[in-house]
Design a protein around this nucleic acid. Sequence first.
DNA 1: GGAGCCATGTAATTCGTTACATGATTAT
DNA 2: ATAATCATGTAACGAATTACATGGCTCC
Lengths: 211, 211
Amino acid sequence: MASHRPSPPRTLRCALLGLLARRPLTGWEVLKRFNRSIIFFWHAKRSQIYAELGRMEHLGLVTSRLVTQDGRPNKRHYTITPAGRAALCAWLDRPTPVEPVKDELLLRTFFAESLPPARTVAYLRRHGEEHAQVLASFEAIRGALEARSGPLAATDDRALVFGHLVLEQGIRFERMYAEWCRWAAETVERACGRPGRAAAPDGATDFIMTS
Amino acid sequence: MASHRPSPPRTLRCALLGLLARRPLTGWEVLKRFNRSIIFFWHAKRSQIYAELGRMEHLGLVTSRLVTQDGRPNKRHYTITPAGRAALCAWLDRPTPVEPVKDELLLRTFFAESLPPARTVAYLRRHGEEHAQVLASFEAIRGALEARSGPLAATDDRALVFGHLVLEQGIRFERMYAEWCRWAAETVERACGRPGRAAAPDGATDFIMTS
DNA sequence: GGAGCCATGTAATTCGTTACATGATTAT
DNA sequence: ATAATCATGTAACGAATTACATGGCTCC
């Protein structure tokens, strides 16, 4: 009795199944679509996508057909199978594991004691500007989508609704981050204008305290 | 002429150097502190931390001394070296690479067309509650820190200022996320109450459009 | 009697990135 | 000229998780 342990995440696999559930695509088309939408909230490199498509075929989640062309490279057409659709639905219906935050900027900020305050202020401001720019680009995308498909808040097109939701999350995230950067830069400036004690008591920055 | 390519990220290494820059610690203590503060914005498992400490010693960034004990296991005391401090400062002073977002909940939401709307609403609400709970716990932590060290907004203690900054980011992030979940759940409910077209035009959810 | 702390390490495996490898066509 | 698009794959490495391995002490 082989106890198939239910092979963990493989989230990329599900993302590709999601794309192929809409229509059959070549590896190259998968790549293009990935980089025009999913890339904003999940990422994978070219080599990883091709490799994963190969594995998915091996597992019977998709089938492929090689299309020979001349003048340009041959391509491979992928079609999702019923097993593939089942795997996608199973994934969608499973509770999402909480993904821990991993943010290098926060890590640096946490250890910024070892850097002159002026530099900390400078990089906080720079990151604030970067996030403000991304925010502006997301708002531009929303504008373009609405120009194409009408106001997103009122659309009754399912796929568009969900696209709208994730775009709105991106906008809220970038706005929050840009504002935090500005606020943090100001806070550091204010705190370092004052005389300032050098050493905090041991463990003062432990967020979880024992005893 | 060996062109030392400047070995990429190794972010965990810098996090551990940051902890050891404050005071010498055993591997176990590093682990404890990591899990009480850094864990909120960076993560690593036990085995990875021990392995990394070993590599850091090999590289001369830290030195270690084995302390034999009886009644309990021996422990190893790590001390940062001048080279270690230099590496930490170099990292802090280098521009932070923009880390692309990776969020499975957004990925699922993007592909939610394949799931009955009621289930989508349900998991959006559930995640909203989870983030609201994390938000509450962060606010409790802030309360406890202020009880220990006075109002954070007015502190002139350097290490405490930076701890305050990252905690505030966590609070803003969780608030933003919880609000988005609630709003998204409502939006899906509204959109799926209406009749609803089935199929979006091809590529309607591409955020980046190529002519 | 069981959970949890103390305390360190290794091995197997998977996941992800970078680099290697090729090469015609089309638009600026 | 040169960059971008089309189009697929492999190899080497590095990063990260899981499981293996050990074992006494303390608190409930």
